[in-house]
Write a protein that binds this DNA or RNA. Structure first.
Lengths: 126, 126
DNA sequence: TAACTAATGACAACGAAATGTCATTTTGTA
DNA sequence: TACAAAATGACATTTCGTTGTCATTAGTTA
């Protein structure tokens, strides 16, 4: 597992991340990458994502009430949030942050992270 | 299913909500209510929560990367958010809201709801 | 108190997401 | 080009949260 080989499948998954430009689920990755590599197995998508995570290229995003999404580490390194379209179930990147969250934290609590998820309809569904 | 009977089990679950004052998982409800009613089955907790939901007393809360939590409808009716302690995995209510989220929404998107989850250490774990 | 039946709780079973397995394919190297 | 092994993909299996089932228990009413 130390060595890595460049396969069509891995490249297709990488390309899906690049072209989508938004957090993707395994299912979405499978559908997108399958356009490049027919007969792509879901198992392979899981492995590709795992490998990209170990390489530090991709990070997981936990979302409320749904399976994990994955996004490029370059995107994730910039602090941002997400918009969830309730119609098509896709997630989009939101740039910016309301800020001033320290004021909301109760006495004695230590704030480390925060996660904001806007929801509604995306431009395609609106 | 139309009629309802007042049972120790249902009352214990209700009491758990009242005394906890924070969103609870099924597991937490089970543990808390079991202090009142020994040999309480998890199945019964699921049914009690379901019934309280149908009565409009309790609502479900989806959280990132975890099973649902439940909280009193009286609490949920006031707009609020949550703090997640990464050490004890408990959720707490946060009163207040950063606001100004409309400015973050991309052109053409329709904002309907939002959900903010602060995370870090609670006062007990800090 | 007796009787009716809702409610309980132990167990099985489900659905979804994720992982294990392994024969086969494919990549990189000699 | 041929070989060794990494990678694939089909399938089985696990895990977790939740629900179905049903004999038994325990509220409620007469």
């Amino acid at each position: 597992m130390t060595l890595q080989r460049t396969t069509k499948q891995l490249q297709a998954v990488q390309a899906a991340f690049e072209t989508a430009g938004r957090p993707l689920s395994i299912e979405e990755l499978h559908a997108l990458a399958a356009e490049q590599v027919t007969s792509l197995g879901v198992r392979t998508v899981y492995r590709a994502v795992r490998r990209l995570q170990e390489l530090g290229d991709v990070v997981a995003v936990s979302v409320p009430g749904g399976s994990d999404r994955y996004e490029l580490a370059t995107v994730a390194s910039h602090h941002h949030h997400h918009f969830h379209c309730t119609a098509c179930d896709r997630f989009f990147d939101i740039h910016g942050c309301p800020g001033g969250l320290h004021k909301l934290v109760p006495e004695g609590f230590q704030l480390e992270h925060h996660e904001l998820t806007l929801s509604g309809l995306c431009d395609s569904c609106a």
